[in-house]
Design a protein around this nucleic acid. Structure first.
Lengths: 132, 132
DNA sequence: ATAAGTGTACTATGTCTCATAGTACACTTA
DNA sequence: TAAGTGTACTATGAGACATAGTACACTTAT
């Protein structure tokens, strides 16, 4: 699978963890769904079982999965995870807006420019700015 | 000086580079101003001259400073640097908004929440939302 | 011309993280 | 009982990072 990117400077275990964090937050994996075993994942991802285990450690510590000894790893309920991630995003955007203001850029302008770059996915819900 | 933080996971040379990037973008250092020498900086920052040199390499490659052999390192003009950084910020915010939408959060709500966290620095220019 | 200060380029050493390989053990399930 | 599961070790190698030390070409002040 195309999960590991050797041009990416991040460690492999972190890339694997990020990949599953994204899948879980997107709802691509259902709650209580069983993940492939450590050894199976190692083969699928072309990585070492120890590296996969390290990625699963991260996912477990951060509340994305839970473990049942002898049975496997399972996807955690996503409600609280989504809320937590949303708060991270809000905080990060606030930091960036503060920096923009520090270097003399207007936060409102920055926000407007960022909106222009948003991928349009629901055109029927989009209001064209110049139509107001 | 309190530039290097050993609790910070980033390498020292990157911390030093980030510190000067920030100073330059904020306008705390004027264009064509001379930086302290590599050896002087090493003492001031309590770091190794080689590590300082590596940080200056980064600053030079990214256009924050320029070098005159035998004389020293000097601060680059900040106009284009600020514009480039603003574009980075815009792109990063767009990425975060896309992710928020992917996990079911409304981008407009996220933006509103981020604005609430902005530090108030110019109250005379701030319009209270509930007063509209 | 000389000395001091400048950036720069090396070698060498030690520490740490990361990734891999291999082995072993306790648990659950078929 | 056998197979599959997570988990915990040891060991090895590669690479990034930081430090120490030395050296050289350049510019500037004396």
């Amino acid at each position: 699978m195309n999960v590991i990117d050797y041009k990416d400077s991040r460690p492999i275990y972190e890339q694997i963890a990020s990949y599953y964090k994204r899948l879980i937050l997107l709802g691509a994996l259902e709650a209580d769904e069983k993940l492939p075993s450590v050894r199976t994942l190692a083969i699928e991802l072309s990585a070492n079982p120890n590296t996969v285990q390290k990625a699963l450690d991260v996912l477990g510590r951060e509340g994305f999965i839970y473990t049942v000894i002898g049975r496997g790893n399972f996807v955690m309920n996503t409600d609280s995870l989504k809320k937590a991630r949303e708060q991270e995003i809000v905080g990060r955007i606030a930091e960036l807006l503060n920096e923009a203001r520090e270097i003399g850029s207007d936060p409102e302008t920055v926000i407007a420019d960022a909106k222009k770059r948003l991928e349009v996915s629901e055109p029927e819900l989009t209001v064209r700015e110049d139509a107001v």
